[in-house]
């Protein structure tokens, strides 16, 4: 088995976040709520977001849902990284993550923990696992404060991956 390849994909940090997620659950209060899925494989994510009083900064992100190690670790890492970010910064990070999945960029020093996901770029069929949570967060941020009832499909996005 090509263990080096697998170690690139399944970095220890990723496995730890999969095994012991720190941000599973639901925020209190729920200022934004969005569900996302990858219909062809069945992965789902249920994101809740708590905003500050002025509604322009993320105080907390939590997730529920079912998916593979890549999808769940990506959600946990994202939730970690989003705390305290303005909505504008958050959307920029979503874009940066997408670029990273195309192998085009990586996160700066203060967000370097997210770079453990870089290995996914070498496994094209798994990119949608990693991007599911980011795509869902983007929809949560861009929606009005009205919580959305339906699922947003990560596979239907025009970019293909995000």
């Amino acid at each position: 088995m090509a263990l080096e390849n697998l170690r690139t994909l399944y970095q220890q940090v990723i496995l730890e976040h999969y095994k012991k997620p720190r941000h599973r659950g639901k925020t209190d209060p729920v200022d934004r709520h969005q569900r996302g899925h990858n219909p062809s494989c069945g992965d789902t994510i249920d994101l809740t977001v708590k905003l500050n009083a002025s509604g322009d900064r993320i105080e907390d992100v939590k997730f529920e849902g079912e998916g593979c190690a890549i999808a769940m670790a990506s959600a946990d890492l994202m939730a970690d990284a989003m705390r305290g970010k303005s909505l504008t910064e958050a959307l920029e990070m979503v874009q940066s993550f997408q670029n990273m999945m195309k192998g085009q960029a990586e996160f700066p020093r203060e967000l370097r923990k997210l770079n453990v996901m870089q290995g996914v770029a070498q496994f094209p069929v798994r990119i949608k696992c990693a991007t599911l949570t980011w795509h869902t967060l983007k929809a949560a941020i861009e929606q009005s404060s009205e919580p959305s009832a339906g699922f947003i499909s990560n596979e239907a996005s025009p970019e293909g991956v995000l």
Binding site: M1, C41, G42, D43, C68, A69, F123
Partner: peptide, 20 residues
């Protein structure tokens, strides 16, 4: 998770299906 299994098996040349 089945997707992770499938990726790992693919590295060993083994093609299985994961999903619903």
């Amino acid at each position: 998770h089945p997707h992770d299994l499938s990726t790992i098996l693919d590295q060993a040349g083994v093609a299985i299906r994961a999903g619903h």
